[in-house]
Write a protein that binds this DNA or RNA. Structure first.
Lengths: 201, 201
DNA sequence: AAAGATACATACTGGTTGGTATGTTGTCAA
DNA sequence: TTGACAACATACCAACCAGTATGTATCTTT
């Protein structure tokens, strides 16, 4: 081998990414771990070398793929000093724009996993709860800063709005997934933007 | 037996209801049909007498339990001549009030099934799509009538609002399920009510 | 270069699960 | 009363699937 040590970990990442893709379509219970790696041309030996069991595959997908992907935007929001409503509206625009028909048909990875696994595995649920609460808190804190800086109406309930913001996005993903329409998703994102407008000062 | 013919179907209904309960917790892929009936004290013989396979169990649950339960309220809305926004707000109140912690932890049955099965089975998806579109249409039509009767602002996009209405409710169920908080659900329902208020004339 | 340790491959297993084949009993119509 | 059929029960099966035990080549460390 020409690779110098470090890149051997590449196999683990490849497996993980493929698991993510498969879970997104089939769900965690529908995931057939051995089939996935077989389709990649590798064997169970490699799989169980990197992951000790199926649940660990799930948590790794959650921690290493889903979580960072979701929190990136809100980490930016945490360090954003300007108008939070504009930031959120732009984020909504970004989601609307980025959503392909395939993305919509497969649904939001976090929401998929959350809906399936919350009643079945408390480990999963708590991990996902943490992500959701971090997002809600990030939005709420930004709105509070927005009040201080004169961007947001004083009577806005920041915590409730943070909740509603994220819930609406996830709801839009959910329904768009069922009716298989990216346009429906964009329509909902548009309405969410106008709703945020109400709280502008 | 003292029962006179008709009531033999009772077994089928009992099975169906138990399947509904189990699917709600474990998902459709997680459903172990034979275990469910075993726990009821009956056997696979009875199960496969009434249902020819697992998928048929799913569609029966959808058609005979979930669907009528969801459409009931909106059938009332279809025949409602008064202010639609008040009707919708009262419906939201009803959902908020009726939601127990257990309901919330288990999530919306329609949404659960929809999220899990949409990418896996087109038969399921189309059935669920139909339910969703019927609800959206019912709300949209009510808002249009509301415009004519002077209850709703003319500039309201009824179709988009119908979508957003239902999406928001489902999103609220979803997130409340993850964080396991009926209070969070009610908070979101409250905000949805204030949002509808905007479109009042 | 010897001795582990790492990164896989191969082969197997034991429990599960959707589904079937077949048997049994009560009901009802002719 | 007898034949047919509905409403189950029992027993069985083949496929699947998470997980393990074991083998082996390569790489690293000393």
């Amino acid at each position: 081998m020409y690779l110098c040590g470090m890149n051997t970990t590449d196999t683990r990442e490849r497996i993980l990414h493929q698991m993510f893709t498969d879970i997104r379509k089939n769900g965690f219970q529908g995931l057939r771990a051995d089939k996935v790696v077989a389709d990649m041309g590798i064997t169970k030996g490699a799989l169980y070398h990197y992951f000790s069991n199926k649940q660990e595959i799930g948590t790794a997908v959650l921690d290493e793929i889903i979580r960072p992907n979701y929190l990136a935007a809100f980490r930016r929001l945490d360090q954003h000093a300007g108008d939070p409503i504009t930031f959120l509206q732009e984020h909504i625009d970004h989601l609307a724009q980025a959503a392909t028909e395939e993305d919509i048909a497969l649904g939001c990875p976090l929401n998929n996993l959350a809906q399936e696994m919350s009643p079945l595995d408390e480990t999963f649920r708590l991990r996902m709860k943490h992500i959701v609460e971090q997002i809600e808190h990030s939005v709420a804190a930004a709105l509070e800063r927005g009040k201080v800086n004169g961007y947001v109406r004083e009577d806005a309930d920041s915590k409730a709005l943070g909740r509603f913001f994220f819930s609406s996005i996830e709801g839009a993903y959910s329904m768009a997934k069922v009716i298989k329409s990216a346009e429906a998703f964009r329509q909902n994102m548009q309405l969410l933007k106008t709703f945020l407008q109400v709280y502008r000062l």
